[in-house]
């Protein structure tokens, strides 16, 4: 395979890793942030924590894979993204660390104060993680202020209307899938959870629809990512993806209204991956676009590792990604009925 083809394949593999991560993480953080709103009962709250605890770690590895894969396949993209968004990434890391350690350790001690602090920290970090991810992707897709001397943006500039709406969108999607997941894994608490969960999910689906509408309009201005997109101009068939996103958003409203847990989980899980795929495709071939001048952005062909490295890693991914999917799938299936 030629170097360019391998680079595109790696671009697709990384999009897949991000998609799997965001789809599955959405219900883990979703159930974390909704837990105190669904029930006040301590035992029932534990019933919400446990399924999240069982799966969160295996899911978070998809994030590490997406980031590690970027390092291996596009080192310059990895380095420049993290360097440019230094403070934001450390905030995200701290939140991810708090989430991980609190969910693992909350029930390792009987002390009620310990449990209370751990659970609260789990709830709050679960709310903030998707918010930060939304702000991150919005900034990434809009382009960083990369100039001749590297990043010229300041930390607080990452917060603007577009990025905050995107953050809210991410949180609301997680509320949809989180509610569905809480109901599906509720066991004997299922009926007690249902009413509140479906209420939250429906409201969240309206928020998602409005936020998606806003973002699509913002994307579609002359300065927006559709406006300057090379790929969307060259291949109009790609407009099918944003259309699909709108349809999924409507399906979210429909299925949360109809109180169908499985369907609102599945369609909810599709939302964030579609959004992120649109963002990456619209910026193609730039993986790290510059909002100052396109030429300062980093495109995937220039950033790609050597043909040899990409080939070795391609075969490794070809063998091991399916294996991982099989045993993680088995785990969901096996513990779904227990």
């Amino acid at each position: 395979m030629s170097h360019d083809v391998l680079a595109i394949i790696w671009f697709a593999i990384l999009l897949t890793a991000w998609s799997v991560y965001l789809a599955f993480e959405s219900f883990v953080v979703g159930s974390g942030m909704l837990q105190p709103f669904i029930t006040k009962d301590k035992d029932a709250q534990q019933a919400i924590s446990r399924p999240a605890g069982l799966h969160w770690d295996g899911i978070e590895v998809w994030l590490i894979t997406a980031i590690g894969g970027t390092f291996a396949a596009f080192p310059a993209v990895f380095a420049k993204t993290l360097e440019s968004l230094y403070v934001a990434f450390f905030l995200l890391l701290i939140l991810l660390m708090i989430r991980g350690v609190t969910i693992e350790l909350a029930y390792r001690d009987e002390n009620p104060l310990w449990r209370k602090i751990m659970t609260r920290a789990w709830n709050i970090s679960s709310l903030l993680i998707p918010l930060v991810f939304g702000v991150y992707f919005s900034n990434l897709f809009g382009g960083l202020k990369l100039g001749a001397n590297g990043n010229e943006g300041k930390f607080f500039e990452i917060f603007n209307l577009n990025s905050i709406v995107m953050g809210v969108l991410f949180v609301a999607v997680c509320a949809i899938t989180g509610s569905a997941w809480i109901v599906l894994t509720g066991g004997k608490n299922k009926d007690a959870f249902k009413e509140k969960a479906y209420g939250i999910a429906f409201k969240a689906s309206i928020v998602v629809a409005l936020a998606v509408l806003y973002e699509m309009m913002a994307f579609n201005t002359g300065e927006g990512i559709f406006g300057r997109s090379q790929l969307f101009n060259d291949a109009p068939i790609l407009w099918a993806v944003p259309v699909l996103l709108v349809l999924v958003t409507l399906a979210n409203i429909l299925f949360t209204r109809k109180k169908s847990a499985w369907l609102s989980l599945i369609f909810g899980m599709l939302t964030l991956p579609l959004l992120v795929i649109i963002g990456y495709l619209a910026n193609y071939p730039y993986m790290l676009p510059s909002s100052i001048d396109a030429k300062f952005g980093i495109n995937l062909f220039d950033a790609a590792s050597s043909q040899y490295t990409l080939t070795v890693m391609f075969y490794a991914a070809l063998i091991f990604v399916p294996i991982v999917l099989v045993y993680q799938g088995w785990k969901f299936w096996y513990f779904a009925k227990r």
């Binding site: 770690d57 590895v61 894979t65 894969g69 091991f320 993680q328």
Partner: peptide
């Protein structure tokens, strides 16, 4: 170093982290 150094890190996630974290959860 990315061309050399990124691969072992990505392979660590793919071959090791998935295995240990998926089953540690259980």
């Amino acid at each position: 170093m990315g061309d050399v150094f990124g691969s072992p890190l990505a392979l660590e996630a793919l071959l090791a982290f998935f295995l240990e974290s998926t089953f540690a959860g259980i």
